[in-house]
Nucleic acid binder design. Structure first.
Ligand SMILES: NC(=O)c1ccc[n+]([C@@H]2O[C@H](COP(=O)([O-])OP(=O)(O)OC[C@H]3O[C@@H](n4cnc5c(N)ncnc54)[C@H](O)[C@@H]3O)[C@@H](O)[C@H]2O)c1
Ligand SMILES: NC(=O)c1ccc[n+]([C@@H]2O[C@H](COP(=O)([O-])OP(=O)(O)OC[C@H]3O[C@@H](n4cnc5c(N)ncnc54)[C@H](O)[C@@H]3O)[C@@H](O)[C@H]2O)c1
Lengths: 221, 221
DNA sequence: ACGCGCTTGTGAACGCGCGCACAAAGTCAG
DNA sequence: CTGACTTTGTGCGCGCGTTCACAAGCGCGT
């Protein structure tokens, strides 16, 4: 890290969580725009492409300290660099996936991560029958090898059954992982310094089910 | 729907979106408790199991109009019935999945939905080579058959490449679907009366990447 | 050089959700 | 029956996030 970057990090205020969650959205829209040859874009147009309010977009970008030009808009290439750097995607980010079942295989074979600086670097499973198998160019290793594949900054992904999730989570934390994405439908407990996010498909469907149910109540068949 | 239910729906206030998102969490914890033979539980204990604040839990449940007993707690079985009904899970909810690729297959083979009143009823794909194939007890049908498999109240799931997502989305809306879950990394536009939720794994990883990057800044190696 | 029109950046108001803390309400023992 | 204990239901204040609306800033045409 250069001294310039350190200074920039100090100067920069803390970025609101809600903003962080939208930066990847902007980044995707910007990549699309760049591919189309667009070099400059207004907050209005970019907000439209990202599906958000333009004032919100401007406020979000202002947190980055990346300045647009009044009367013109934002420089697409500069914004991509700026957001990528802020998200830590400039230097490739290592991802360790635990649980190579139905979901794990789909994730391992997915190309959408690598294209944005994220790459799955290791596949782990407790099933001896799976270790050694080649999936998407990676060799499945035994869960006991976890400490060997974790490097500082690694992100852990849990795709095991719910019953094994807390155990695997503890192993990850023990190996030094401080950022975990959990697909198992369980509440996991982690130390305060570990970031834990979850993706729960059942919950998403149940939320939709709720609204569908509500619609059927106000509009009785 | 009985007149009692209509009356209940009228009496019940509108439930905050944040509460709706937590009901499935409570429901899961309650099912676990019921399986263990617990018949009564305090808000404190249930909140612990669901990983939320107990005051928040009580406020959430108060929206349901389901009353606990002071000094005792909540009746587990009654709460399960009450939440399930509120989420519209009492009568089975039909799910139509479009796009039987890596992710679509994983979803189709997943048993976690059916166990909670949600069941995938139809698999659709545009690839003629896939139509007729049996997956998880269902026959893959051609996307052109969409109108035939959609019933009132169906939930649509999009697991196609991003390039086809808006097209598929329009087809779903055209067929009468008003609740859609999208896995493709694109912004979709839908009429105002359609509920659209998205699950974006890349975004989750990028958010974790951001925090990991931040940690490395304040603790320079 | 200068003003016109466009776009950014942000001040301020609003609404929502969270969590503390407590009164009301019910249980249970004696 | 009474009193002590337990747990619910909620009033209230706080902080975050969203949005409107506008002043400040910049480029461009003339
Ligand atoms: N498949 C889906 O579409 C889907 C959808 C929603 C949620 N999920 C959740 O994602 C998780 C994985 O789902 P799946 O369908 O891939 O399950 P799966 O049973 O197909 O795969 C689980 C894998 O985890 C491995 N495993 C078990 N214990 C382990 C341990 N202690 N350490 C390492 N690996 C271990 C198993 O060997 C297996 O390969 C589950 O928690 C499931 O509830 C899956
Ligand atoms: N695989 C993953 O782990 C993963 C992770 C994150 C996001 N996603 C997203 O989920 C989506 C699906 O991913 P995937 O890996 O399963 O892709 P995939 O290419 O394996 O499967 C896509 C399927 O959609 C079908 N399809 C294409 N156009 C269609 C149309 N117009 N109508 C109906 N079906 C059509 C294809 O025939 C194919 O079977 C993609 O948008 C991807 O970005 C996938």
């Amino acid at each position: 890290m250069t001294t310039t970057e350190i200074a920039a990090a100090r100067r920069r205020e803390v970025i609101p969580e809600a903003t962080v969650a939208r930066l990847p959205l902007y980044l995707r829209a910007l990549h699309t725009l760049a591919d189309e040859g667009t070099s400059t874009i207004s907050s209005e147009a970019l907000a439209e492409a990202a599906g958000v309010n333009s004032a919100k977009l401007r406020k979000d970008l202002s947190h980055l300290g990346s300045y647009g030009t009044r009367g013109v808009g934002y420089d697409v290439a500069h914004l991509i660099t700026s957001i990528s750097h802020e998200l830590g995607l400039s230097r490739r980010c290592s991802v360790v996936l635990v649980g190579v079942g139905n979901l794990g295989r789909a994730l391992a074979g997915y190309g959408g991560f690598a294209s944005r600086g994220l790459a799955i670097d290791a596949l782990l499973d407790a099933d001896p029958a799976l270790t050694g198998e080649q999936i998407a160019g990676l060799t499945v290793r035994h869960i006991d090898d976890l400490p060997e594949v974790v490097v500082p900054g690694s992100i852990g992904v849990i795709a095991t059954p719910a019953s094994a999730a807390q155990l695997v989570c503890d192993l990850l934390v023990g190996a030094g992982v401080t950022s975990i994405l959990n697909f198992a439908p369980t509440v996991l407990s982690v130390p305060a310094d570990v970031d834990l996010r979850k993706v729960d498909l059942s919950i998403e469907l149940q939320i939709l089910s709720f609204h569908e149910h509500r619609k059927s109540l106000v509009t009785p068949a």
